[in-house]
Amino acid sequence: MANDDTPQNAEQPKSMQGSSEETPTIAPEDDATAPNPAFEPTEQDEPEQDEQADAVSEDPQQGHEKHEDHGLAHTMPIWMMLAVLGALMALTILTVSVTSFDLGSEGNLVVAMVIATIKAGLVVTFFMHLFWDKKFHLILFLTAVLFVILFLSMSITDRGEYQHNIDLYTNATTPAVGK
């Protein structure tokens, strides 16, 4: 078991490990600016090309050129993560404070949903790496959203159409208290 669990690289001599961790912000900063994002889409755009791309990326030379940032996926710089968190926190404060204003019958709901969607967009784009990820994953995610909209819109439209029947039933069956 011990043998199997031995990692290929992560278990480093303690001294080295420590030295990098005490200055985590420095290494990443440098790291973030280094990769050329232009390389990313060309390799990751088309899922169909995976096998071929794999074969190529195994080659150290090619790999060096293509995977400026650690081979398998994009590495997000720390400043960006912190910035996204800052934005998310600010939007949370905004959405709470907006509730104290009256923006009309549906206004508050719309504003709250718009803010929530912006927040969700930030999380999906940056924390979930969709900005750099394969486009197919973006398509998948949008498909999910599309089908949710389809499901909700048809159900709700129909419910709106037959609501008057339910109202008739409710009014007929509710005991009129105090009459």
């Binding site: 048809m154 439209t157 129909d158």
Partner: peptide, 8 residues
């Protein structure tokens, strides 16, 4: 015939 609206 479930009570679904004619539109749907």
């Amino acid at each position: 015939v479930s009570g679904q609206s004619v539109l749907a």
